Amino acid sequence: MKVYAISDLHLGVPSNRLALAELPYYLDDWLIVAGDVGETAEHLHYALSILTRRFAKVLWVPGNHDLWTVPGTKDSALEGDERYRFLVNICRSYGVSTPEDPYPIWKEAFVLAPLFLLYDYSFRPADVSEEGAVAWAQETDVLCSDEYLLHPTPYPSRQAWCQARLAYTEKRLAEIPAAYSLVLINHFPLRQEFARVYNIPRFSIWCGTTQTEDWHTRFPVSVVVSGHIHVRTTDYRDGVRFEEVSLGYQRNWKSEKGVQGYLREILPGPPLPEQQPATQWYR
């Protein structure tokens, strides 16, 4: 029995949809889906109808694409938190665990905690203000589609929504008994150093919040799972393993490997390395 993870399936891409349909069965194992399944409710239904038949248990967290309100789609009337709750209910209809459900326990030792944490534009240089962050990114012709499609309703801003999610999540994590080891699961990386957007560095402001920089040591964490960056890596910090588990667009992965070639083993996972590079890159 193992726990695998993948993110950024991006099922709006036809080749990704076809590849997911060919995924083998892992009937004894669990799967973490760390966001960006697609842009519509139909994409989520398609993914879960396959994955819940392939795995013993599935856990889901939303990515920014999942939260988009795309004009002309069947669910285009849903924005912000209402859209998020709509997606949560779809997941629950398939028996999939979400950030709003009790955290699943694996082998009586690990608590798997699906999180929904946003970003607050704090992944930026010290001399750039929060108010000027988007304009700073635009200076290099970088602008995330979230600015048009990810609505924070009913919150006044994405930053305010992020703050509410942080408060909600911190409270829940603090209530977990200390006897358990945690696996934190979020779409966005929890540390700024892992926002490896080298080709578009100013995109970093849409990649997380510095308020989670110390969560891997503040809580009894063994593994942190994230996606979003489309740069697959394993990192070790302070004895904690950080896994970036994205599939991505067709240019980001090799079709001959199939989706199964990009499933990452989270538990039990590899032993903590003694003389291993702090970062491992995966292609």
Score class of each variant (00 low, 15 high):
Ser15His: 13
Arg53Trp: 06
Gly132Ser: 09
Leu27Ala: 13
Leu9Cys: 04
Arg232Ala: 09
Ile229Met: 12
Cys91Phe: 07
Lys257Arg: 15
Ser255Asn: 14
Ile266Met: 04
Ala179Met: 06
Pro99Met: 03
Thr40Gly: 03
Ala133Asn: 01
Leu143Asn: 05
Tyr94His: 10
Leu247Gly: 01
Leu9Phe: 03
Arg53His: 08
Glu243Ala: 13
Asp8Ile: 04
Lys74Asp: 15
Ser157Thr: 13
Leu51Glu: 02
Ile50Phe: 06
Arg165Thr: 11
Leu117Pro: 09
Gly239Trp: 00
His216Cys: 05
Tyr155Arg: 09
Thr98Asp: 03
Arg283Pro: 13
Leu143His: 04
Thr209Trp: 04
Ser49Gln: 07
Phe219Ser: 02
Glu147Gln: 08
His10Ile: 01
Tyr180Ser: 06
Gly63Tyr: 07
Trp206Pro: 10
Gly258Phe: 03
Trp161Phe: 14
Gln163Asn: 14
Ala5Trp: 01
Pro273Met: 08
Asp127Cys: 07
Leu267Ser: 08
Trp161Met: 15
Leu31His: 03
Glu22Gly: 10
Lys254Gln: 15
Phe219Ala: 00
His216Leu: 05
Ala137Thr: 02
Pro71Ala: 08
Leu27Lys: 15
Ile205Ser: 07
Leu112Ser: 00
Thr40Ile: 03
His45Cys: 02
Thr69Pro: 09
Cys162Gly: 07
Phe116Asn: 15
Tyr198Ser: 14
Val225Ile: 13
Arg124Ala: 02
Trp136Gln: 00
Glu274Cys: 15
Val142Asp: 01
Arg218Leu: 04
Phe242Gln: 09
Phe110Asn: 00
Arg241Asn: 12
Ile105Asp: 00
Thr69Glu: 11
Leu118Cys: 12
Trp106Ala: 00
Thr52Lys: 01
Thr217Trp: 00
Val128Thr: 05
Gln260Lys: 12
Thr140Pro: 03
Arg264Ser: 13
Leu20Arg: 06
Asp127Phe: 12
Gln163Asp: 15
Glu265Ser: 06
Thr140Asp: 11
Trp161Gly: 11
Thr209Lys: 05
Phe203Gln: 05
Pro99Asp: 04
Ser255Asp: 14
Tyr119Glu: 06
Glu175Asn: 06
Val13Trp: 10
Leu267Trp: 03
Glu193Thr: 11
Trp281Phe: 15
His216Pro: 03
Pro14Gly: 07
Pro104Val: 02
Gln280Glu: 14
Ala5Glu: 05
Glu108Asp: 14
Glu100Ala: 13
Leu272Glu: 10
Asp214Val: 06
Val128Trp: 01
Asn16Met: 06
Gly72His: 08
Lys74Glu: 14
Glu193Tyr: 08
Ile90Gly: 03
Val70Cys: 09
Glu131His: 10
Pro177Trp: 00
Phe203Tyr: 13
His187Pro: 08
Ala167His: 12
Asp127His: 13
Leu48Ala: 03
Glu42Cys: 07
Pro268Gln: 05
Val225Arg: 02
Asp81Phe: 15
Glu193Val: 14
